[in-house]
Amino acid sequence: MNGIEPVRFATCAGMASVGQTERSVRVWAADDLRQMMEIPVRREVFSVAQAGDHLVFGLDNGGVMAVRLVEGGGRR
């Protein structure tokens, strides 16, 4: 695991955790840590940040990837 980041989409608060060996980003509900979503990134993930309704991932080899959560939502 390389990091976690609080996230908020629409009315849903949670956090995103990024994994190195599992090469995925997981989004967890803040209240009970239930997994809400898994985003397989296909690469090692070192950091995550929310920017608008996007999650942005810091990858290896200087790579950045952005995904948009389809539900849409709030916090930047």
């Binding site: 942005v56 810091g58 990858l59 080899n61 200087g62 790579g63 950045v64 930047r76």
Partner: peptide, 11 residues
């Protein structure tokens, strides 16, 4: 040349 891993992001 490969880049470095990205350990920090900011929106």
């Amino acid at each position: 040349e490969p880049g470095a891993w990205i350990g920090s992001l900011a929106a």
